[in-house]
Structures are given as structure tokens and as C-alpha cells.
Simulated scan of single mutants.
Amino acid sequence: MYQQFFGFLNNLAHGDLGTSYTFRTPVWDMISARMPITVSLTLVAMVIALLIGIPTGVLAARRAGRWQDRVVTVGSTLGLATPNFVLGLLLTLVIGLKFQLLPATGYVEMSEGFWPWLSHLLLPGFALGVVAAAEIARQLRASLADVLRQDYVRTAVAKGMLPGTVVWKHGLKNALMPVVTVIGIQTGYLLGGTAVIETIFGIQGLGDFAVRAVLSGDLPAIQGMVVFAVIITVTASLVVDMTYGYLNPRGESQ
């Protein structure tokens, strides 16, 4: 057993994850071929999450205790409570099949055109991005509401600076640290956890590959996906730590 373990580590150091039992292909070749698809889906999902989460979080923080804050709170709670596969099925049935506004399944390479590529990723990206958007909005609301109560914010407003300028120029940067943590965690989760959504929308990315590996008992493929997920998670954590230094330079000197 120890010979197998150290043999696996030696092969891993040379980029060899073994050969898939099912596909009879090197696992790394399978991962590298499907990686651009999952990365594209993750990118679209995170852009959607940021476009929804940041404005709603800022709105809730600026209107803390008012009806806008309550609406955002209820909406984010519903977003966190709704499984992404349920939302994905609803989007497929309503938007993709009934109204046929966007493609319900499949994936198109960007080389065939930006809109065909994006249109195939909007529905699965939205299904994945809603949970991330809800968590971003909640974290940003709590952090920004605390920042807006600081003395330097009151001073800036007292000097005549517009409240919107104070929020976006001064308050938001100081409130982004917990949001960056959420973004890093969600990015790692999306890259390693798109299995159900890719299966629903017929996208042959890493998630679909992981499902096939598990169902067929393909041990080298399963090990390769686990190693890949670990690498992505560690990399996302490293990027988050580096971003902390930019958002809070005083933390580095301490």
C-alpha cells in the first residue's frame, strides 16, 4: 500500500494522474480538455453573482432598517435556501423550453461567436450565481453598514461630499474584505461543484466528468478530480490572502 501511495505522489509530481478506466485516456488530458468549459461557466456565474450581490448589498446597507433592507434580507435568505438544481430545472422548463428565450441545454465554444457562447451559459450561470449573490449581499450589507457608522464617513458627509460618493469611493473598499472571502470560497466551490448543474444543462465539463467517474467507479478519474478540487481551493485561498494586502495594507505591517 505504501508503495502505491508514494508511486501515486511521484506520478502526481510529474503531472500524471493515471489513466481512466472508463475512457482509456490519461485523466489529466480529460481534465484539461473539459476545464475551459467549467471555467467559462464559473466566470459567468461569478459575474452574475457580483452584478446582483454588490448593488443589493450596498442598497441594504444604505437603507438599513427600512423596507429595502428587509426586501434584500428576505431575497438573500430565499436565494441561500433554494437548491441550485431546483432553480436550474425551473429555468430550463420556463425560459429554455416554454418561452425559448435562451438555449436550454448544451455548450458552444467562444470561437463560434460570443453571443452563442454566452447564451448557452446564462441559464446555468444564473442557477449557480444566485447562491453566491445571496451570500455576497448578506456579507456586504453587514460589513458596509458597520463602515458607514464610522467617524470618518460622518466627517466626509459633513464636509459636503455626496453620500453616494462616500459609499462607493471610501466605504466600499473597507467593507470588501469579508466579501472577498466569500468570492474566493464560492469560486473554489463553483469550479469543483458544478456537477449537478452541468448534468441538468447537458454541459460536458468537469462536473459531468466527475459524475461519470463516480457512477462507473473510475478510481483514477475520481482521484484526479479530488486533487484538482484541492488545488483550486488552495489557489483561491491564496488569491484571497493576497487581495487582503491590497484592501487593508495596514494588516501587512502588523
Rank of each mutant, 00 (worst) to 15 (best):
G171Y: 11
G171E: 12
K173Y: 07
N174T: 06
N174M: 05
A175V: 04
L176E: 01
P178N: 04
V179D: 01
V179T: 14
V180Q: 05
V180G: 05
V180C: 11
V180A: 15
T181N: 15
T181C: 10
T181K: 11
V182A: 13
V182F: 05
V182K: 01
G184C: 02
G184M: 00
G184N: 02
I185W: 09
I185K: 03
Q186N: 12
Q186K: 15
Q186D: 03
Q186S: 11
T187D: 01
G188C: 04
G188I: 06
G188A: 09
Y189S: 13
L190Q: 05
L190G: 02
L190V: 08
L190H: 08
L190N: 10
L191V: 10
L191I: 14
L191Y: 07
G192V: 11
G192S: 12
G192E: 12
G193E: 08
G193R: 07
T194N: 07
A195M: 13
V196I: 14
V196F: 09
V196P: 01
E198W: 09
T199D: 13
T199L: 13
I200E: 01
I200A: 13
I200R: 07
F201V: 10
F201I: 03
F201T: 13
G202W: 06
G202H: 12
G202L: 07
I203D: 01
Q204D: 10
G205I: 09
L206N: 06
L206C: 03
L206A: 02
G207N: 12
G207F: 12
G207C: 06
D208E: 08
D208Q: 13
F209C: 04
F209D: 02
A210N: 06
V211F: 12
V211A: 07
V211C: 08
V211I: 15
V211N: 04
R212V: 02
A213G: 13
V214A: 13
V214W: 04
S216N: 15
G217L: 05
G217P: 03
G217N: 09
D218S: 08
D218T: 05
L219C: 00
L219V: 14
L219R: 11
P220T: 12
P220Y: 07
A221S: 14
A221I: 07
I222F: 03
Q223M: 14
G224F: 03
G224N: 08
G224Q: 03
G224I: 11
M225P: 00
M225W: 08
M225E: 09
V226M: 07
V227C: 00
V227W: 11
F228E: 03
F228K: 06
A229Y: 00
V230Q: 00
V230R: 02
I231G: 04
I231M: 12
I231T: 09
V234A: 07
T235L: 14
A236R: 08
S237M: 12
S237A: 11
V239R: 03
V239M: 08
V239D: 02
V239E: 00
V239H: 05
V240M: 02
V240D: 00
M242T: 09
M242K: 11
M242C: 13
T243Q: 09
Y244L: 10
G245F: 01
G245N: 02
Y246W: 15
Y246T: 04
Y246F: 15
N248E: 14
N248M: 07
P249C: 10
G251I: 13
G251C: 04
